[in-house]
Amino acid sequence: MTDVLLSARDLTKRFTTRGTFGRKSEFTAVDGVSFAVHRGETLAVVGESGSGKSTSARIVAKLMEPSAGTLEFEDEDVTHATGAQLARYRADVQVVFQDPFSSLNPRHTVERILMAPLDYQGIAPSGGRRAYTGELMERVGLNPDHAQRYPAQFSGGQAQRIGIARALAVNPKLVICDEAVSALDVSVQAQVLELLLRLQRESGFSYIFIAHDLAVVRRIAHRVAVMSGGKIVEQGPRGQVFDDPRHPYTRTLLAAVPRINPEWDRRRRAATA
């Protein structure tokens, strides 16, 4: 896994806010952030609110231009990509958002939602729309017979599966998950995490997994970048960041995660084994 798919160098994003009496003040949300995503791996970006993790994701998704820094995808500078280059990038890089209901058009059927990325790219699926939709739905564990239903007819977990299926519709090389499982109940969350892991095993794409929940990140990430105050304070393989954290902030963050009494947990497992 030395094959770099995407690399971000010194990404910086400054926002200018205008307060009362027109006073301008500048706020640096992302401050010189560099990271690389290899093919087939999951890079998790963790941090608390205001750490700059979501802004970083938005820059990589090209929903936002960085104030400074460069973004390279497959050895091509895409920092200011436009036209055909941008369209190609948008096909290769897909996003799954936190709230499936607000990111799915409520007036469109599942089929129309799943076909939208292909329509945008001007691709007609071989075998027809219906078959393609059905196949996608099956991959994410949805009943293909429900292709003509609307988002509101699905539960939160199922709606998130639609969001994932839409991201996969154009065979992306990178999927950005922005707090994609944060809003889900734990049992549903576990299923969606399983699904994300399986899809990666099957298709070999990469994830940038933005999350605040360290336990979830530990479950899914190969490498972890810890952000605080717009900067990456620590970056490394999962084992290192979780078991041997170098930065004091990472240690604080890990120590704050609530845990089930380990002795009770051990007894429960011994009893079920």
């Binding site: 049992s187 576990a190 929940d213 530990r218 845990r259 947990d265």
Partner: peptide, 14 residues
């Protein structure tokens, strides 16, 4: 039991 099994943990053996 299912609920307890589904939560990801920070200390588990993977």
């Amino acid at each position: 039991r299912r609920l307890l099994e589904s939560i990801p943990r920070i200390t588990d053996d993977l």
